[in-house]
Design a protein around this nucleic acid. Sequence first.
DNA 1: CCGATTTGACCCTC
DNA 2: GAGGGTCAAATCGG
Length: 346
Amino acid sequence: MEKIGTLECKSVISELTQGRELANQLKNQLHPAKSHETCAILVENILSSYENAISLLNCRAMFGETSPVSAAILESPYSLAGTPTSEGSNPFSKDQNQRDVFKKRKILPKWSEEVRVCSGTGLEGPLDDGYNWRKYGQKDILGANFPRAYYRCTHRHTQGCLATKQVQKSDEDPSIFEVNYRGRHTCIQERLKLNKEDYNVKEEDSNNRHAEEMVISNEPGIKLETPDLNPKEEMDPSFSFPLTPIVSDDVETEFLLEPAKDCNFMESYTSPFISPATSECNYFSKSLCQMNDFWVDHNLQSSESDFADIISTPTSVTNSPFSYWDFTADPLELDLNFLLDTSKYF
DNA sequence: CCGATTTGACCCTC
DNA sequence: GAGGGTCAAATCGG
């Protein structure tokens, strides 16, 4: 696998280091419970820093040759330029495309969430998870009271993003939508921007929470499936979702989230400001902690593709800072110390 | 007019 | 062969 270029690597490390420093400052700010304003600025800077780093990595992934992200794009029926392959010029292309789709079904990581929608608010409900989805099908499912809707990323054609999701009302409780995600977003969406705005809105909302907003269940656990991966190497769901688990009844690995006991400051700090972002912060911190665990547990020996899956499986509910992460075969190149160090701060 | 949704048909997996 | 997932033409809506 290609390695991160020296310059890029330095830039990424620089960004991440800065993020670490800012996080450190934030930590100091939080301890004596200083002004929320300062915290807000620091948080924004931290997020910005991480987003920059992610963007750098993502750019590299987009143009890399063998990284999982770019590989997904290259494997897709659509060219990098975003134009569908000409079916007319190739009599096998349609067939081939379809076969690719079914191949990918097995390969793509998948996970599920339960999303509760309270009272009719006109909100998009579970569909409004920050990504742009386009419905491409609906089916009545045997034994289910409600049809299952199929969505794929709006940027499938333009960016070759293969992320899809299935949404189905729960039989037991029609107010709950079961959302099954498959594949990670490889597209670049307006999401980060929107999230920042959203972030501010939520900040206000947190002080005045309405029952009408879409509620993501906070009960622990979430189901995550990676059919083709060795269980030992499967991704850690908490990596991606601070959310709800759905009981898994198949053989595929199920992960249950524990409270982030090792993330002390998050645990002990609950201000109106942090609160709305808790899922994100908590997710992020948890991610780092568990990334650390992952590396330790796996002695840095997991395969690059598995590793990338673990890193990059996005959540559609939180703005996963790791959505676009992509590593070289040698994670040490990315300065493991950063991750080890950072985990201490969360 | 263009993008999103609907829906029947097709294909794959089990 | 049944059931689930995707395609693509038709339709809808802004």
